[in-house]
């Protein structure tokens, strides 16, 4: 009976397509969740760096640094990237002594922030590329989430003299 084989063939194809769609939907969901969690970690590290900078500014009477740290802490989402870049510039313009505890806190926070930024950028890129696939767009998968957004700031790593790294 040739008709029977048509039915079997069609069922197999439908099943395969369904499996692929479910897998893709899960993948899109997973990647978006990941990007969101990375954004939370990035946010925490931004706050941590600004707090460390504020502590240092208070002790040194660094008015400009303190202002930059406050602005970074209070910034609205759309102004935040610029505010964080300002803070990075302020931190680069001052002398940091790695043997001093408050300075070391700022240097370490900047280093950790650089890692969080790197990871966040990678995960957002993965999520966006998954979201951007034609099939995913067509079926509007992952629409429960907003489009993952890059957080575009300069590399916050602070350069310290090579000889000092070894004594860290």
């Amino acid at each position: 009976m040739p008709g029977m084989w048509w039915v079997v063939g069609a069922t197999v194809v439908v099943a395969l397509v369904a499996v692929y769609l479910i897998w893709t939907a899960g993948r899109v969901e997973r990647l978006q969740d990941r990007a969101q969690l990375a954004a939370r970690a990035l946010d925490a590290h931004l706050l941590r760096r600004a707090a460390a900078a504020a502590v240092l500014a208070e002790r040194r009477d660094g008015v400009e640094l303190y202002a930059a740290a406050r602005i970074a802490l209070d910034a609205q989402p759309d102004e935040r990237e610029a505010a964080e870049n300002d803070l990075t510039r302020q931190l680069r313009s001052i002398q940091l002594d790695p043997t001093d505890a408050d300075c070391e806190a700022v240097i370490a926070a900047s280093r950790r922030l650089a890692l969080a930024r790197q990871v966040h950028t990678d995960l957002v890129r993965d999520a966006r590329s998954a979201r951007g696939r034609p099939l995913v767009r067509l079926l509007r998968m992952g629409r429960r989430h907003t489009w993952p957004r890059y957080f575009d700031i300069d590399d916050p790593t602070l350069a310290i003299p090579a000889a000092d790294v070894s004594s860290r």
């Binding site: 969101q36 970690a41 590290h45 950790r112 890692l115 969080a116 990871v119 995960l123 070894s166």
Partner: peptide, 21 residues
Amino acid sequence: VVARRVLEVYAAAIEATDGRV
């Protein structure tokens, strides 16, 4: 020294996976 830097990357990966610091 190098292992401490690797540990920082571990920390970044763990943080990005569950959002805690």
